[in-house]
């Protein structure tokens, strides 16, 4: 714990709340880092702006830190989520801003934007749900239980790379992109009738 307060609290805050990745310098929220292995990896590798602690801390110290983070600071336990239930909760609470295919963009009218969730880690998503970075509302445990958050995270992880059995998904833009493609189809058809009649003299 001493080591955590010395080395990590500068960015991640004394209780690990961070301010998620929405603000560049502050460290991510650690409330969902319930896997010691993942914390260990982060300490060794130093993802993104985070420094590498490989040469600063001994292995035992790093183990102590990761245990502390995983067992004391992490408040959201991200296991045993229910994919379908997560989908329902996602569509009710999240889809309005982040779109059903988690590509973001719902808030574009007011100048800010709900970020795309593709490529976001489970811990980051869970932390953001609880903490509410930027204009995002907070979902405290009284509103969404840990299990519900875990379910939502499961669903988002699934939809980050959803299967598109029907062909190109057009980046999941929906009917606007489909309309453009439909007109490409119509223009193709017009090209074909031009060929059929070879232009023609009318």
């Amino acid at each position: 714990m001493q080591i955590y307060l010395q080395q990590c609290a500068k960015c991640h805050g004394p209780t690990g709340e961070g301010i998620s990745a929405a603000v560049t310098i502050a460290g991510p929220n650690l409330w969902a880092e319930d896997d010691p292995g993942r914390v260990m990896t982060a300490l060794e590798v130093g993802p993104s702006h985070m420094p590498r602690f490989e040469y600063i801390l001994s292995v035992a110290q790093m183990h102590a830190v990761s245990d502390y983070v995983a067992h004391t600071i992490a408040q959201i336990h991200l296991n045993g989520g229910d994919l379908s239930r997560g989908g329902e909760l996602f569509r009710r609470n999240c889809a309005a801003c982040h779109r059903t295919a988690v590509r973001g963009g719902g808030l574009v009218f007011v100048g800010t934007n709900a970020p795309s969730l593709t490529g976001k880690s489970a811990a980051l998503i869970a932390g953001a749900i609880r903490w509410g970075p930027g204009p995002m509302p907070r979902f405290p445990p009284s509103v969404l239980s840990d299990h519900q958050v875990a379910s939502i995270v499961d669903y988002i992880r699934y939809v980050q790379q959803p299967a598109s059995p029907g062909g190109s998904a057009l980046n999941w833009y929906g009917p606007v992109a489909e309309g453009f493609v439909a007109w490409v189809g119509v223009l193709l058809m017009i090209g074909i009738v031009m060929w059929i009649e070879k232009g023609g003299k009318g």
Binding site: R91, A95, A96, R99, T100, V159, G167, G174, P175, E178
Partner: peptide
């Protein structure tokens, strides 16, 4: 088009629920 470009992926939108909503709710062209 029907085989190479996906249209109206209803499974991503989810079933209609009174309290659920999504942005980008455009009609067909």
């Amino acid at each position: 088009l029907g085989s190479f470009v996906q249209i109206d992926p209803v499974w991503i939108y989810g079933p209609f629920k009174a309290d659920a909503i999504l942005p980008g709710a455009q009609p067909d062209w």
